[in-house]
């Protein structure tokens, strides 16, 4: 990607590097350079093609929290599905056509007694098949260290007050499992269809930093 050019005016306010100027000195760190070198070697060796790389990136970008919301809405509507989802998240999601790939999904249920919160202290493990790419704050050192150390303070900063008679259960996603929080179904949502329920289920409610939206 040495010299691509396109027409645009100045004062355009977006933040990619200006194509007519050299990249900032040092803008490629060690791991970025290593990624480029390894990728180019694998392309040169025919292990995969540039189109494979592009398609994989496109697939990753196409995933979004809508997938997770569909799973949660079904669990709220169908107790037997919910039981299967809590028993084996991977196979239950596959029932809905949400392929989990190699991901082992553990679903943890919020109840009036327990509030669950997901973090990966070691890196940024995240149920991408269901939620898409993680938000930047999920990968930040601040969230990763404080979510285990003082989860209630972190939750309060997200606007989620958890009373002392509700247990906060943090899940540190350190190995092969990925975690999805099954938020509590909000009061007043009794008559809603699965599609309408899915609108109440946000990304943050499935990470556990927030509750599902109230209907209406």
């Amino acid at each position: 990607m040495a010299t691509h050019e396109h027409d645009h005016g100045h004062d355009h306010g977006h933040d990619h590097a200006h194509p007519t100027l050299p990249d900032e000195a040092g803008s490629r760190g060690y791991y970025q350079r290593m990624e480029i070198a390894v990728r180019e070697l694998l392309l040169a060796q025919g292990v995969f093609t540039a189109d494979d790389v592009r398609r994989t990136v496109e697939d990753m970008d196409a995933r979004s929290p809508a997938g997770g919301a569909r799973v949660v809405a079904r669990a709220w509507s169908d107790p037997a599905f919910k039981a299967r989802l809590l028993e084996n998240g991977t196979t239950a999601c596959e029932e809905l056509g949400v392929g989990m790939g190699p991901t082992k999904l553990v679903v943890v249920e919020n109840t009036p007694e327990v509030h669950n919160l997901v973090v990966c202290t070691l890196c940024s493990c995240y149920p991408r098949m269901l939620l898409g790419l993680p938000p930047d704050w999920y990968k930040s050192r601040d969230y990763r260290s404080r979510a285990v150390r003082e989860p209630r303070a972190v939750l309060a900063e997200f606007g989620t007050a958890v009373p002392d008679d509700v247990t906060v259960r943090v899940h540190d996603s350190t190995a092969d499992m990925r975690y999805l929080v099954l938020p509590e179904r909000p009061a007043g949502s009794e008559g809603l269809s699965e599609l309408q329920l899915a609108d109440l289920i946000t990304r943050d409610s499935m990470i556990g930093v927030a509750k599902a939206r109230q209907p209406g």
Partner: peptide
């Protein structure tokens, strides 16, 4: 138990952290 992991943990006794360990 959070209070066993962090001696100055400010939350209730029942709070926990679950971790995958080999």
């Amino acid at each position: 138990r959070q209070r066993e992991v962090w001696p100055d943990y400010a939350g209730p006794e029942a709070d926990t952290v679950d971790i995958e360990i080999y």
